[in-house]
Nucleic acid binder design. Structure first.
Lengths: 136, 136
DNA sequence: CTTGAACCTATAGCCGCTAGAGAGATTATA
DNA sequence: TATAATCTCTCTAGCGGCTATAGGTTCAAG
């Protein structure tokens, strides 16, 4: 049995975030001490670790609700879990692609060595999208 | 002189977003028609295009305020503009790096071909960070 | 028993929009 | 000119995923 502060330290999830997850229904309301403070078990720790890890991989709160539900039913097929991971992967890949285009553009405009705004590629490019090399 | 709808079509910025930018002080309050509707000039169009393009490159509203201010003073040195672009570039690169680690992890867990949750790498990995290959 | 750290609830704020309600303006057609 | 269809106006609230603050209570160590 540990306090919310302990749980926070052990999982790396901040205290208000833990309470937020409780509100969102990701974790069950835990037992309370006589003075009404939350007391967590090892199960609570496991569950929160799962959540934290899922968040780190970019799953939404809603996705995580689904994943947690699945994880409680080991006999179920795992198609749904795979689908979620696959969608997540697609999303991540799309974002990488987009950021790479931005990186390209930012590198290009940062390369300008003018010394005043009038000749500065940064400002000039922002003012005129036509000067860009890639779409975005 | 065009209406907010026209401006929206020409720049690709949605109407409520234009009003939001006005509220945020990125664009000046434009003239109004007799019936109190906004009427924009070509200058307004230019400014909004600048803003839109900056947003596409990921600059924050605050950054854009600075960039717009700079763009109004062509005689100033462009060090500040370069610094902002450089910071932006760093940020983009950091995000790419992080997303690539996620991509790696998601690919790995998606590769599992178990057919029930009990043996599914997706769920198993989420439950135990120790199974991951990279940091995140 | 006292102190100070940790905890409680409730509410508001962050960013960058987006959506909706309910009213008024403008424009196109009959 | 009347009317209908489409814009536009302001105001307020909501999104996701937290984070911060205020004002109070409880816990554990000395």
């Amino acid at each position: 049995m540990f306090s919310i502060g302990e749980l926070s330290k052990r999982t790396g999830v901040k205290i208000p975030t833990i309470r937020y997850y409780e509100q969102m229904g990701l974790i069950a309301a835990p037992e309370r001490s006589e003075g009404n403070q939350r007391r967590y078990s090892k199960d609570g720790l496991k569950r929160l670790s799962f959540i934290r890890h899922s968040r780190q991989l970019g799953f939404s709160i809603d996705d995580i609700r689904g994943l947690l539900e699945l994880s409680q039913h080991p006999e179920k097929p795992c198609r749904d879990a795979h689908n979620m991971a696959a969608r997540r992967l697609e999303d991540v890949q799309a974002r990488i692609a987009k950021l790479k285009r931005l990186e390209h553009e930012l590198k290009r405009i940062s390369g300008c060595d003018a010394d005043n705004i009038a000749d500065c590629a940064v400002i000039e490019t922002l003012a005129d999208h036509g000067l860009c090399e890639t779409d975005h």
